[in-house]
């Protein structure tokens, strides 16, 4: 079998809101291998986003263990987590979370600039990736000059620019029409098959199932089936 990319053991996340405790994750254990394209599905409020946030180091779990690429990420400091996210992880959010003041290509190369790559290098990589996601003609457009689907593809390109070990996507197609959704999903499929990109994607839609290798079903903060 392949290498373990993510190992999760008995992961719990409890939100405390005043006197009320919300148990969003009640003990999730799961392994994800390198090169897998995994879908996370389940009813609303089942903890899908919460799980993704814990694995993506955007939040700190209440208890449990997470190993990513052999690193015990729970033990990292905030600063180390930031560096880990920059170098190893990529994110695509539900909204097209790109910066309105930057052009498509600037949005894409920002993380690359941040790790200190040379300008010629990151410029070329970014243009290549934008061409891969089909935006070769939109390099210098600002977000407000792009459609929702195009903006989401810029977000995908940005997530990929530092060649992350894992790509996290939380309902990346939620705000897109079917045509654009297909475009994104096919892009993910292609990245997964051609580059062996490990992808974790939260989704609602039944028809998305056919794009992923396997599905983790969540219900009430627990894994219902895999």
């Amino acid at each position: 079998m392949g290498l373990k990319m993510i190992i999760v053991k008995n992961l719990k996340r409890t939100y405390v809101m005043g006197k009320v405790e919300v148990h969003a994750l009640k003990g999730v254990s799961v392994n994800i291998e390198k090169g897998e394209f995994v879908g996370i599905m389940g009813p609303s409020g089942s903890g899908k986003s919460t799980l993704l946030h814990q694995l993506g180091l955007l939040d700190t779990p209440t208890s449990g263990e997470i190993m990513i690429a052999g690193v015990d990420v729970i033990g990292l400091s905030e600063h180390e987590k930031t560096i880990f996210r920059l170098n190893q992880l990529g994110y695509v959010f539900q909204e097209y979370a790109i910066l309105p003041e930057l052009t498509a290509v600037e949005n894409v190369y920002l993380p690359s600039m941040m790790i200190g790559k040379k300008r010629e290098l990151y410029l070329k990589t970014s243009i290549d990736i934008l061409e891969t996601v089909g935006l070769g003609e939109r390099l210098y457009h600002r977000p407000h000059e792009l459609s929702g689907g195009e903006q989401q593809r810029v977000a995908v390109a940005r997530a990929l620019v530092n060649k992350p070990k894992i790509l996290f996507a939380d309902e990346p197609c939620a705000n897109l029409d079917t045509e654009s959704s297909k475009h994104i999903l096919e892009l993910f499929r292609k990245l997964n098959e051609e580059l062996g990109q490990t992808i974790l994607m939260v989704s609602h839609e039944e028809w998305h199932k056919k794009y992923v290798d396997r599905i983790i079903y969540l219900k009430d903060g627990l894994i219902e089936k895999m």
Partner: peptide
């Protein structure tokens, strides 16, 4: 605020 959150999420250092 939201943009700042996104910047931090994608790994841009808070100091930056």
């Amino acid at each position: 605020r939201k943009q700042i959150g996104i910047l931090k999420a994608i790994g841009i250092n808070q100091k930056v």
